[in-house]
Computed example of a mutant assay.
Amino acid sequence: MRICLIASDPGHPVLAATAALLAPQHRVESLDPDRGDTPPAELLGSGPLADVYLLKAHTPRALALARHLEERGAPVVNSAAATAFCQDRTGMADLAHRSGLPFADTRTAAGIAELPDPDYPLVIKSRHSRRGDLVARVDDATRLRALADQWPDEPVVAQPYLGGTGWDQKIWVVDGQVFCARRRSELAEPAAEPAGGGAFGPRELPADRAELARRVGEVFGLDVYGVDLLDGPAEPVIVDINAFPGIRGQAGAPEALAALALRVARQGGGHRLPAQREAERDTAGR
Rank of each mutant, 00 (worst) to 15 (best):
A251Y: 14
D240K: 07
V237I: 09
G249H: 12
D228R: 08
G221Q: 03
N242D: 10
L222Q: 02
A253E: 10
Q250D: 11
D240Q: 08
G226H: 00
I238T: 03
G252W: 02
G232K: 07
L222K: 01
G246A: 05
I238F: 03
G221I: 00
E235W: 12
R248P: 15
P245S: 08
E218N: 12
R248N: 15
A253G: 03
P245F: 06
V227T: 04
G249W: 11
V219M: 00
I241F: 02
E218F: 06
G252I: 03
G232Y: 02
P245C: 04
R248M: 15
P245L: 05
G221K: 00
Q250T: 13
V224E: 10
E235K: 09
A253W: 02
G252L: 06
G252C: 05
D228K: 07
A251H: 15
L230I: 10
G226K: 04
E235M: 13
A234G: 13
G252R: 00
L229W: 08
Q250M: 15
G232T: 10
G252F: 03
G221V: 01
A253V: 12
N242L: 13
V227N: 01
D228Y: 03
N242I: 09
R248Y: 15
A243E: 11
V239H: 14
D223A: 14
I247G: 09
R248L: 15
D231V: 07
V219N: 01
I247W: 04
D231K: 03
G226Y: 02
G246W: 08
E235I: 07
A251W: 13
